[in-house]
Amino acid sequence: MTEIAQKHLAYCWIARGDRVLFLRRGPGVFLAGRWELPGGTAEPGERFEDTATREAAEETGLTVRVTGELARDAWPDVAGRALHIHAFVYTVEEEGAGEVVLNPEEHDDFAWLTRAQARELPLPDHFRRLLDR
């Protein structure tokens, strides 16, 4: 029997008023052209809350702190690998309202969107489920 590996992702729900920060994945990366929340893969032994804040800083240049857990989701790997994905989405507060500075190796655009606007974008299924809650 094949062992199924586990991958843990953590994301930030960075809101300014009724708008939330979404990033578009750049050309040449997995799921290029799709929009997502700032976040990424947890390092071994890293707390998921720490993953979320680290990834937000790396991907947007914003400094945030976790204020709560918004959602959890899980699904089998979309590429068919023996891998199960677990995602955590955290509400955060910005430490100052800084300017978004993207990491061009990962993302090529960003937008502050309402839930309705975000629903119109090409999103991975787990983000669509989050918006439809």
Rank of each mutant, 00 (worst) to 15 (best):
T41Y: 01
T91D: 11
E58W: 05
R81W: 07
E120C: 12
G45H: 07
L62T: 08
T60V: 14
E69H: 12
H126E: 07
T2M: 11
I85S: 02
F48W: 06
L83C: 14
H107Y: 05
L131Q: 15
A10R: 08
F48L: 12
H107A: 10
E105L: 11
P122C: 11
E120H: 06
L83H: 03
Q6W: 08
V101M: 11
G28W: 02
M1L: 05
T51P: 13
E95A: 09
Y90V: 05
G80C: 05
R128Y: 15
L23M: 15
P76R: 09
E95V: 11
P104T: 01
V92L: 03
R81G: 09
V89T: 03
A87W: 02
D109V: 10
V64N: 11
H84S: 10
H126S: 02
E93V: 09
R54L: 04
H107V: 12
Y90Q: 08
F22L: 12
E43G: 02
R65L: 12
D109F: 00
L102P: 06
D108K: 05
L131M: 08
T114N: 08
V78A: 04
H84G: 03
P27T: 04
G40V: 06
L62V: 03
E59C: 13
L62D: 10
R16M: 12
V20E: 02
F48P: 00
A10E: 02
P124L: 05
K7W: 08
E69Y: 08
P44L: 06
E93P: 11
T2N: 14
A111K: 01
E59R: 03
P122K: 06
N103P: 03
W75L: 11
T2D: 13
Q6K: 14
V64I: 14
K7P: 00
L37M: 10
C12A: 11
F48I: 08
P38G: 02
T91W: 00
L70R: 09
D77W: 07
P76L: 13
D109R: 01
D73H: 11
H107G: 02
A116E: 13
E46S: 09
D125F: 12
L31D: 07
D108Y: 01
D125P: 05
T67G: 06
D77E: 12
H86E: 04
T41Q: 09
Q6Y: 03
E106N: 13
T53A: 09
W112T: 08
G96I: 05
